[in-house]
Design a protein around this nucleic acid. Structure first.
Lengths: 161, 161
DNA sequence: TCAGAAATTGACAGTCATTTTCAATATGGA
DNA sequence: TCCATATTGAAAATGACTGTCAATTTCTGA
């Protein structure tokens, strides 16, 4: 993990271009967000930052995440929980997600065949697709091996209907 | 549209089987829900019922929709809006959705090829899939014809990131 | 048909994630 | 450095939904 993540620069550029200001809080939040490398919720990110800089408020975390979305550096996603998780991938990388219902792991993937078939099916129905969302819920290799009979004790699992 | 929707009977059976009671409110709500034939939110369903029976409260609509889910006669879905829409299809029909960003139309479809390819891709990544969610956002035939240059003026469109 | 336990209802208050408001403060260009 | 303007944090507001509770309705079983 390089010290200077190019995304930090891209965010700085975005702020400058938009007439917004670079602040200590934004620096910290954005840095922590990219360093996490996972799909965090605003609250989770807030807690991580708290340990380093207790002065930063949850509200500012929400506001900065919104800026990251506008900058195309994050995407908000809802995986059946009640809150939004933020995906630190460039908004223009159209990938899909596998979510383990037991350990909560979120794995990203991209499959060209799946993508083109999807387009084809939509076109057949007269639809022009601009965005898509595919989430596959189930069990990752490790959790499947442990057996799925017992109720998951990780995060809230099996929230489907 | 036949007068006696078999789903009404299935719901009555569910209530009896669960030791629950058939009430005027539940009758009205369930009837209006199936009659709508669209993905309604609790609020939308509530408004429809208001015109016929102003005595029924929003809370009761929420509670009855929850019962419909338990009965396997409805599924809660979130299409990027802030609220839940209810899908009046049997819970065991695994279908996908096309959502028009301009007119808000939600079209359902099922494609076996897409389904099996999805399974295959997941399996290759070591994942055992139990549920999935695929939503394709874009423009339906009619709206695409009208041109997508202008901002949609239908319902809140383009809520993606 | 009637009684009465148990379920149901509607109004209202409570939750939970997120947003808005607003006075105090920090930033960055002139 | 000055200062208009953006930003912050705290608290209140929001919006969707759920819990509480007294009053009412339903469905037995006598």
């Amino acid at each position: 993990m390089p010290e200077s993540d190019p995304r930090l620069q891209r965010f700085a550029d975005f702020l400058a271009r938009s007439g917004l200001k670079t602040t200590r809080q934004r620096e910290r939040i954005v840095r922590a967000f990219f360093a996490a490398g996972r799909h965090l919720s605003a609250e989770e990110l807030y807690h991580r930052i708290q340990t380093q800089d207790p002065g930063i408020g949850l509200v500012t975390v929400y506001r900065t995440l919104k800026l990251l979305r506008r900058a195309g550096l994050a995407t908000g996603r809802q995986f059946g929980d009640t809150y939004t998780r933020f995906d630190p991938n460039p908004a223009d990388w159209p990938h899909d997600h596998l979510i383990c219902k037991r350990c909560g792991k979120i794995q990203e993937f991209e499959d060209a065949g799946l993508h083109s078939l999807r387009e084809k099916v939509a076109r057949r129905l007269g639809f022009t697709v601009t965005e898509h969302k595919l989430e596959l819920y189930g069990f990752c290799r490790d959790c499947a091996r442990l057996g799925t009979g017992r109720a998951a004790r990780g995060r809230s699992a099996a929230r489907t209907a």
